[in-house]
Amino acid sequence: MQLRLEHFLERLMYASRWIMAPVFLGMSLILLMLAIKFFQELYHFVPHILEVDDGQIILKLLTFIDLTLVGSLTLIVMFSGYENFVSRLDIGSEAEKLEWLGTHDYGSLKLKVATSIVAISSIRLLKVFMEVENTENDKMLWFVVIHLTLVISAFIMGYLDKISKHG
């Protein structure tokens, strides 16, 4: 009796991973929202391209890069999370398969997310530096402190991942 109950509970817990499937599917809506925002920004920027100075062009370019990085991070989390925690993607042999798909375990997924967050933070910090005259000193300090915290955290995670694989 106890063995059957244990087996039932284990199967139920294992099946509960499918609760995450709609969450990963919902991330597709986030991608759609990012694409809409990207093209909205582009639509408003292109007509004024001849009127803005180089600094404003660079700031807008950083916005586009930022949105692209967030979208890429969303894709990585969506596909890797689904494959790691729900089920392998069965898209057929004739479909184009992303080369990295199925190669990220949970540790490498965390490291990818951390490095992507550092990249996004770097772009945000660069935007703040480019508008330094509009930023208060104490806010600038907090931006730098937060960014350095993210960098150090990503470095420590990468180091711990490296020693856990080799140690």
Rank of each mutant, 00 (worst) to 15 (best):
R11G: 08
W100Q: 03
E83L: 00
F143G: 04
L126H: 12
L34I: 15
D161F: 14
K110T: 01
I120Y: 09
A154M: 01
L101W: 08
V70K: 09
E6T: 14
Y106R: 08
I120F: 12
M13R: 13
L59K: 10
H166A: 04
R4W: 09
D138E: 14
S87L: 05
S164L: 12
F129R: 09
L59R: 10
I76N: 03
E136R: 11
T135F: 13
L101D: 02
L69K: 07
V46C: 07
I117V: 15
S121W: 00
S93Q: 06
Q56A: 14
H44E: 12
M1H: 03
I30G: 06
L62C: 14
Y159S: 04
Y159G: 03
G71Y: 05
S108M: 11
Q2R: 07
V46M: 10
V77G: 01
L126N: 10
L34E: 07
M1D: 03
I152G: 02
Y106N: 07
L61S: 11
N84R: 02
Y159C: 02
K97D: 01
Y43R: 14
K112E: 06
N134W: 12
T68L: 15
T103K: 14
I57E: 07
H104Q: 12
L98D: 06
H104E: 05
I146E: 05
I65C: 14
L61H: 07
K162R: 11
V23W: 06
K165P: 00
G102E: 00
L69T: 02
E10H: 10
S80E: 01
E94V: 13
L125T: 02
F24K: 00
N134S: 12
E96C: 06
L126I: 15
F39E: 07
M1A: 05
L31I: 11
H48L: 10
T115R: 11
Q40C: 10
S72Y: 15
R124H: 15
G55V: 13
Y106P: 03
S87K: 11
E41D: 12
V128Y: 09
D53E: 15
L111G: 02
A95V: 01
L12I: 04
V132T: 10
L50Y: 14
I76S: 03
T103W: 08
N84T: 00
L69P: 00
T103S: 14
L125Y: 09
I76F: 07
G55S: 12
Y159W: 06
N134R: 11
H44T: 09
I91N: 08
A15W: 01
V52D: 12
G107E: 06
N84G: 00
D53V: 12
H7G: 02
R124Q: 14
R17D: 00
F8R: 06
A95P: 04
L126R: 09
T68R: 09
E131P: 07
L34V: 08
E96D: 08
F8P: 04
E136T: 13
L148Y: 11
W18H: 11
E136P: 09
I49Y: 13
L73D: 05
S116H: 15
